[in-house]
Design a protein around this nucleic acid. Sequence first.
RNA 1: GUGGCUGUAGCUCAAUGGCAGAGUGCUUGACUGUGGAUCAAGUUGUUGCGGGUUCGACCCCCGUCAGCCACCCCA
Length: 427
Amino acid sequence: MKQIIQSVKGARDFYPEDKARHNWLYERVRNVSTRFGYEEWDGPFLEKLELYAAKSGDELAREQAFVFPDRSGEMIMLRTELTPSLARMVAQRQGQLVMPLRWWSYGPFWRYEKPQQGRSREFFQWNIDLVGVNSPEGDAEMIAIAVEFLKSVDLSPSEVLIRVNDRQYMEVHLKSLDIAEDGKLSVFKLIDRYDKMKVEDWDANALELGLSRKQLDGLKTLLADMDGWHRSENLTRIFENLEALGVRDYVVFDPLIVRGIDYYTGMVFECFDVSRKFRSVLGGGHYDNLVADVGGDPLPGVGFAMGDMVIAVVLQDWGKLPVFADTRADVLVTLFDADNAAIAMGLAANMRRQGLRVAVYPQVDKLGKQFKYADRLGARFVTVIGPDEASEGQVTLKDLTAGTQLTIPLDAVAEQISHQLVDEKSS
RNA sequence: GUGGCUGUAGCUCAAUGGCAGAGUGCUUGACUGUGGAUCAAGUUGUUGCGGGUUCGACCCCCGUCAGCCACCCCA
């Protein structure tokens, strides 16, 4: 094997077919976001370590970030998530921005993790936030955006579901079980792992946390109560709104969804493949105070994030990833010989002016090689101008799909190709 | 950070201690102005890297790097 310098572990190479898939996904994200009236924005890829360290429970900055000193010695971090930048940028212009703010973003993030299925060290993430609002209507809108995205990539409720819960609903019931306020977060983390652990282990863990047998039983009753959302006014109104937004069939109540993240304070949701083979496709929730860690006045909101890796795995698994066909050129212009090359180049320029994608074979070569190149490019048409055509001011145009060819005047080629392309589409 | 599996031709993979192979791709020709089909010939190697054991290592051992998978985590 030849010595090729390796890429950085976990970094992503985007070959043209990868880039095509990336653009396909981005296009759907952009389309859904803008249809709900959101504006695209972005933060810097580099932030000060300090910005992330300000967040509590910052395993991200401590363990899973690319951190390095710049030339002045300041500690810089490649961004691992967008929320701190969002908080900073919103706080900087808190008095000027039109609230509620509707912002979305799609860009690269880096986490120093062990690469595996659906996870690498470099990934793209869609972030979307509705900031400055505290209502079930806002919460429902965010879920609806997620559903509309799922629809746009042709995933149905029999393939993926959004699971919704409300931390306040959970807290009220934990309180009624006399579970202490300061033990709340660790209980949430335990609930978050309910599906991953064996029942005995989970029970043992709960008792270790200091829960009594009675509290444990009460907790399990709560987690099994699939109709409990009727007792939450917030969830009831969210579900009413989801009904009105026409997305109710994608959404279920799930008391096991609590999310590991501390700053969520109300509704939380995650999207999973129904097989539960994969990690969550997207997740988000309602928060009370976006700018708490960076200074600024308290600001509620709701948002979610979706990485590009898990969704790709899920789409692949359901056979919903399109085949990205070669789209390199419509026409290959061959160079027959040096005498006629200039005419061919002129023809190519003319066809480009008419909006066709035209590649010229960049040197004189055997026609067989040039045709083969056209075939492998995926170009549908090939033009040939040899001495016979040149003397008559004509060009031979071959349609590789149909296997037919005809010889026509030079200035009629672009129109002829357009006709055949249109015929193809309408038939 | 912890553990498991894998690493051989451009690609997919054989060869289990004794001459490194197949399919596919690629090149050329059959086809002197025409691709995709077919046929023929040719071509393709630091067996990831470094060390060790052995008369002899793709094969066994140690280390290392990478990929995949699980754990951790999931912001």
